[in-house]
Nucleic acid binder design. Structure first.
Lengths: 134, 134
DNA sequence: GTCCTTGCAAAGCTTTTGCATCGCT
DNA sequence: AGCGATGCAAAAGCTTTGCAAGGAC
């Protein structure tokens, strides 16, 4: 449990209650918007201001603790950075988010960039899908 | 030149001056935000309200005339739909947008979705790149 | 003439910021 | 104690909407 404190201190951030709670919620629930986290914390009887959540998420992003995604719903969603990179698949019927990783695609992307004289700094790939007829 | 009128009528939209002008600007300048188009039209001495541009772009999107992209700059950018699908590469140093298409990646994406019991409805792939050291 | 479109202003949403208070270390 | 962090409320984008006036067919 003091693991999260270490994580925060390593990033130069004081281990405050709001920050720890936000990390915990992200850990257990995955892909959330600032508002989602806000509501989640209210359910847990933790009174954290929405502004604080935005500030903390921005700091976490700079520290490399979370990634911010701009899927297309008019708001950003955040997730904890895991060891291995992955991309996302969003079901347009259920809104559920699935993760996947494909080395062949990653390699092609690097080649494509290189062919034009670039190197990849980051990338973003989202597949919008729906269940196949059964 | 009456080509744009036909295009609009086919979509069930009256061929009004604002709509024609917006199409022309998108045709010549590529990837633009609503604000970009607004400024561009002012330069051309065409007085079109920003709200109209948003409304027209939304209609164009529904009609399949333009695509809306949510890159990550806090605003959407639009481009005319071309015959062949393509993805984007954004240079983080210059902000320039490059287009590319890769059949191998497209196939992998379809396979990945299928393996999980889904079919792809749409997808979004953006590579953020920078120039290789020369 | 009818119905769709437009422009302006106002409202809506997500996100950011100012400032006094509070809380880690 | 000191300085960073928080909360509230206000402000700042981008985008949407209501409504009266204007334009296409």
């Amino acid at each position: 449990m003091p693991k999260k404190n270490k994580e925060l201190q390593k990033a130069g951030l004081k281990a405050t209650l709001p920050r720890i709670k936000i990390l915990e919620v992200l850990d257990s629930k995955g892909h959330l918007s600032a508002e989602d986290i806000y509501k989640e914390l209210i359910l847990l009887d933790e009174d954290v201001g929405l502004a604080t959540i935005y500030r903390v998420l921005t700091q976490f992003e700079s520290a490399g603790i979370v990634i911010k995604h701009n899927f297309e719903e008019g708001h950003a969603v955040y997730e904890i950075v895991s060891d291995e990179h992955h991309d996302h698949m969003v079901c347009i019927e259920t809104g559920k988010i699935y993760e996947f990783h494909d080395e062949i695609i990653e390699q092609r992307q690097a080649e494509i960039a290189k062919k034009q004289g670039f190197e990849i700094v980051d990338h973003n790939m989202v597949l919008y899908v729906k269940k196949l007829e059964s």
